[in-house]
């Protein structure tokens, strides 16, 4: 019997890595969204003081969610492949 432990370990490692990476990036995106809301709320009374930081947070969140979307698209290509 020829069990390919190597391929098995590789599959397990890649699955684990992708899961943790996607969830981490997604969570960071959520954190950035929360920051943006907090900044906007704090700046609410004082005019447009926090818009720069709010925009930076929004950009960060967009990058995170775009990265997750890219992984999903790659997943779709695997399904169709």
């Amino acid at each position: 019997m020829n069990i390919k432990w190597n391929a098995l370990a590789q599959t397990a490692g890649i699955s684990f890595g992708i899961t943790v990476a996607v969830v981490t990036v997604f969570a960071l995106g959520i954190l950035a969204l929360s920051r943006r809301e907090a900044v906007l709320e704090a700046a609410g009374g004082t005019g447009s003081g926090g818009t720069g930081r709010a925009n930076a947070a929004l950009a960060g969140a967009t990058v995170c969610f775009a990265a997750c979307a890219a992984v999903v698209v790659y997943g779709l290509s695997l399904i169709a492949g």
Partner: peptide
């Protein structure tokens, strides 16, 4: 993987809204 990801998800978003 789900266990590790769950831990991280909670840790990262702990201070979020």
């Amino acid at each position: 993987a789900a266990w590790g990801a769950t831990k991280l998800a909670y840790a990262i978003t702990r201070r979020g809204n």
